[in-house]
Design a binder for these strands. Structure first.
Lengths: 335, 335
DNA sequence: ACTTAGTCTGCAAGCGCTTGCAGAAAGCTG
DNA sequence: CAGCTTTCTGCAAGCGCTTGCAGACTAAGT
């Protein structure tokens, strides 16, 4: 590998001049700069980022701590992050925790050792010890869809409560009065619980009474949606619509409905939440609340860029709006 | 940040002794080692990986160059890679090219500057200039599902031809004689073309004549599967089964079939290829050739580990076996 | 002609760590 | 106890780059 020293030696210059030439320092004579550039090209010079980082204390690397890259939801967000990171000269180190809290801590430590300039955290809850680990990082950290804000950690998220209400209201406006709900884990204060609250709030708004018999807890996975739906359909009177707290459970519900001989949307309307790629693949295509997945990533990375540049954030939290995407699973197009 | 020098100063030792103590060098007195460890803990010492890498010329970072992380296929492979990388102390830098050839080259260069110890390349074709860029890397490179082998680049892949034949044979054994095929891009010599060849080979084996009217080219995306299927179903006699070169196109085909009023599998059996998460989500669940996605990743990473350790590979290429996963889209369970 | 400001380059130290070499101390052997 | 090996620690150089400082030289202002 050729180094700056090599170039300097060949040209009879000092290493520091070479450095300045290569880095567009103003005070370097145009012809020496050109000579240096030319030599660099000719000698196939590639700057050693490690050395540079060591000298400047800027690595231009960010860490991404994520639950599961094989999950469409996270993969999509990751795409957004990588995109703007790259556009600004940053590389991203991928840390997949598999929801293992021990790994979350381990990765946080690892990233610190690797001298990353910033971290995006999107894995698991934020128990005290994780918050502590985040706080003691010497680089900025932003969380996505986590309750970071209450701990003073910059966050980008959606308003789960409001968006769930939006979905419910859509069904109500379609004429449904008996609406089942399949929730996520209710001990999940970030997306599980608030979506249920939004559902309840929308019902209340319209004077529809809440019936626990047609709300069932799931775990955001398809199978749990199937089971929950089966329980819900035993209630009398049966619901004419089902709102699932994410697409996978909605799809599970559709499967169960079809097994039970119900047609979607003719007999039962189904609406989901997230708008991952699954929503378009299933038949009928799923009407759903579209989280701006990609934008969750880009916004978080942009936030991080500001922080890494030493700027203060105008708002510690960015709340993104979701879009109701009407496909076929609820029939009519609504209002 | 506390450094080794700090620890050394506090304990009245030399930096080098601290280094050796921390790195389990044999020649260091147990009590000094213990003192160092204790001080490191107390002072909250975190080794600076960058500095270490600079001194040792080992970064313990690998680069992953990939087409699109938001694609389930790649995401799943990535998961496998990250898993074994982490287990061996390596971090992975994610490089999403979006199939942009310019970005492929850019990332290859970037990774070299970042002094990665190895690269896994899984993006686009391998035209001469990319091969050249790979060859001139000073670290080992392995490709996944690319025709790297012919250029002497270590590769892990599946036997697309044989696996496609397996799928076709399955349909034949189910009694189908009129089998449509939706191919990938035929200029894709790695997975597009060979799957068609496998299809043809299996037909020939059974003395079924190849009918171009019922094989249509797609581009591996759902919409292309829909269009291709529509064309295929115009042929007379109509096929009783369709083999699509990947799951997404198979699902597209199922959509079209259902629009045309055909039942799957009663009227037309459908089989896919890949076994991404889509296959289980769709109704009926898709029978498909399951690529060992995760293992493609783990094998590639293991291969890379060997190379990075300076070992020679017994085989420059690893060919993984696929599994036929029988679900409902072809009806019967076969033989 | 003389200061002053501005442009260009080199020197040297430093980023935080590793490692070969050498010397000191301790443990063996005969 | 001389001589040898083994264990332990320090010294110093080095990984490849950046950057403050100072000196040299040029251009300009009075």
């Amino acid at each position: 590998m050729t180094t700056m020293k090599d170039i300097a030696k060949v040209l009879g210059l000092n290493e520091s001049t070479v450095s300045r030439a290569l880095n567009n320092h103003p005070y370097v004579r145009p012809e020496t700069r050109e000579k240096v550039m030319e030599a660099a090209r000719r000698m196939n010079y590639r700057p050693n980022t490690l050395a540079r980082s060591l000298a400047t204390s800027r690595s231009y690397v960010v860490g991404l701590v994520i639950s599961n890259i094989a999950n469409l939801f996270f993969a999509e967000v990751t795409k957004g992050i990588e995109e703007v990171a790259d556009a600004h000269g940053y590389s991203v180190i991928l840390c997949d925790t598999g929801r293992n809290p021990a790994k979350e801590l381990k990765y946080l430590d690892l990233l610190a050792r690797r001298q990353v300039d910033g971290i995006i955290f999107m894995s698991g809850r934020l128990p005290a010890h994780v918050v502590a680990a985040i706080k003691q990082q010497s680089c900025p950290v932003v969380t996505i869809s986590r309750d970071g804000t209450r701990h003073g950690i910059p966050t980008v998220r959606i308003n789960n409560r409001a968006e769930a209400a939006k979905a419910t209201r859509y069904l109500i406006n379609l004429g449904h009065r008996r609406i089942g709900f399949i929730s996520g884990q209710l001990d999940d204060a970030e997306s599980g619980l608030p979506r249920l609250e939004g559902y309840r709030a929308a019902l209340e708004e319209s004077g529809i009474e809440f019936d626990p018999a047609i709300v069932q807890e799931g775990d955001f996975r398809m199978e749990s949606g199937m089971r929950a739906c089966a329980r819900i359909m035993q209630a009398a009177p049966r619901p004419t619509a089902i709102f699932a707290a994410n697409d996978e459970m909605a799809i599970g519900a559709m499967k169960t409905l079809s097994q039970l001989g119900f047609k979607v949307p003719a007999d039962v309307a189904v609406i989901g939440f997230d708008d991952t790629a699954f929503a378009t693949v299933v038949t009928p295509p799923l009407t759903t609340i579209a989280q701006p997945l990609r934008m969750l990533g880009t916004s978080a990375m942009e936030m991080l860029l500001k922080l890494m540049a030493g700027q203060r954030l105008a708002e510690i939290e960015t709340v993104l709006e979701c879009q109701l995407v009407v496909r076929a699973s609820c029939g009519g197009t609504g209002l």
